[in-house]
Amino acid sequence: MKVLVTVKEVAEVEEDFELDGLRVADQYLDYDLNEWDEYAVEEAVQIAEESDDDVEVVAVTIGPERSEETIRMALAKGVDRAVRVWDDALDGVDLLDVGAKTRLLSAVVEDEDPDLVLTGVQANDDSFGATGVSLASAIDFEWAAVVNALDLDADGGVANVRRELEGGVEELTEVDLPAVLTIQTGINEPRYASLRGIRQAQSKEIKPLALSDLGLDAAAVESDLVLTDVYEPETESAATYFEGDAGEQAAELATVLREKGVGAQ
């Protein structure tokens, strides 16, 4: 069995920063693995550890060479090998939209032929939250989004999942394999890379793939989205804290809401 995990290196912005054109200036950025992907990686590694059969866990990322450092941390946590898609054509792209990501990842899926694809629910930089489901649709896999519990029956070809819906509602459902599951934070407790794992990861493969290796050309990364402006939203008002017991706080809240026009005819 093979599990493919999509992972992404994301930039985290320091508290104080400056903008440089359409992006945050480099010196204010720290790069790290997307938080949701940490949980997807952990879930995949646990599937491999708990299975009696051989399970290969492969991570795939779209990212420049710099991202290898981050991806290698996933290898240190137990992922067997990684694929990194990058191309000169991607260098000039400010914002890779869901469609472009889907085209690239679909090509990797075709190449790798996994039984299960795990993605994070979203990435905490662009926060589209759509790539996993879009990928499932493109490769014609079953899918479940925002999964916060997973019990895999590989022999039966079924993933028993619990999904988080709006308003605190949860859904228990079965998804036939092959499937794409988008993984929610909290599904497990991501481990630290062990020192031994870090050493082993140094010799694990991160295979670079260009668009042509995937049978694609520059048209695959053309995006309908154009980044037009980046700005810091102005703080309009500070938070208001209500004091007193619950009754007093409720009364204060009611006053504020009424002043804002709630309940007005």
């Binding site: 630290y192 890379a193 870090i198 050493r199």
Partner: peptide, 15 residues
């Protein structure tokens, strides 16, 4: 080395 940098990063994260 890459490994040494990774050690530093992950140990710090743990701490």
């Amino acid at each position: 080395s890459d490994e040494q940098r990774a050690i530093r990063e992950e140990v710090r994260r743990f701490a």
